[in-house]
């Protein structure tokens, strides 16, 4: 019976117990598996998991909460939750989605706290990116110089346009486009009907495509 186990299981266990340094060489799936073995995730494996997925956490949190200054703290809390609960993840293939969900849940927990504590006026305040904190990392596969400039400009504009969307629209389109959630999942997470999700996504897209028309038509 034990012979019917997939090879990856045994190989992961073997590598995990012998040399934790090899975590860097493991494919994502096996790395998640390794973090699930033992009483608590192994330090080296978990660190490697964080290195691989931190950019995703950053991206999700950035787009959900572009105007929050303490996203680094939130990201840490996301990873602490992952550390505690990674064993509960049934299918390691779904790790990325699961991670997004943890980050999103944390964002909503925080949002609720902040809404309770802050005056309603501040929620209506426009979301600006004027504080100059942003510095964009350009993808490694860089296009040609002149193309690079327009692409960069497009990304800047897109980021700004997303951040300028009213909160409910921004979070909904981010859950859809960046986190890849289905409408039903979004409806469940945000506590609204499917129709509302559909409408919010359409409206967010409508506004974005109107604002970015010049870049979108060019392609």
């Amino acid at each position: 019976m034990s012979q019917s186990f997939p090879v990856s299981w045994s190989s992961v266990e073997a590598t995990a117990s012998q040399t934790p340094v090899q975590a860097e060489k493991l494919p994502n799936y096996d790395l998640v598996l390794q973090c699930q073995t033992g009483h608590r995730p192994e330090k080296a494996a978990f660190a490697e998991l964080m290195r691989r997925y931190q950019s995703h956490v950053d991206k999700v949190l950035y787009h959900l909460a572009p105007d929050w200054q303490d996203r680094a703290d939130l990201a840490q809390e996301v990873w602490i939750r992952v550390y505690r609960n990674v064993k509960r993840l049934n299918d390691p293939i779904k790790f990325r989605g699961w991670l997004s969900r943890i980050a999103t849940n944390l964002f909503y927990d925080e949002l609720r706290k902040r809404k309770r504590n802050s005056s309603p006026l501040s929620l209506d305040a426009p979301l600006t990116l004027d504080d100059g904190e942003l510095d964009w990392e350009i993808a490694s596969a860089t296009p040609g110089p002149e193309e690079d400039l327009t692409t960069r400009e497009f990304y800047d504009q897109l980021n700004e346009a997303i951040a300028d969307l009213p909160e409910v629209f921004r979070t909904t389109i981010v859950l859809r486009e960046i986190e890849g959630m289905a409408y039903e999942e979004i409806a469940e997470l945000t506590g609204v009907s499917l129709g509302t999700v559909k409408s919010r996504i359409a409206r967010a897209r409508h506004r974005l495509q109107t604002q970015l028309q010049q870049y979108l038509d060019g392609g």
Binding site: R51, A72, I138, L216
Partner: peptide, 30 residues
């Protein structure tokens, strides 16, 4: 076509500069 471009934009959107270096996050979390 425009919406497809927009989607493409979303998907290839560069990751913002992290608010703190990854290694610092790793260190703090551990």
């Amino acid at each position: 076509a425009r919406l497809m471009m927009l989607r493409q934009g979303f998907r290839s959107l560069p990751v913002p500069q992290p608010s703190q270096p990854v290694e610092q996050t790793v260190e703090k979390v551990l």
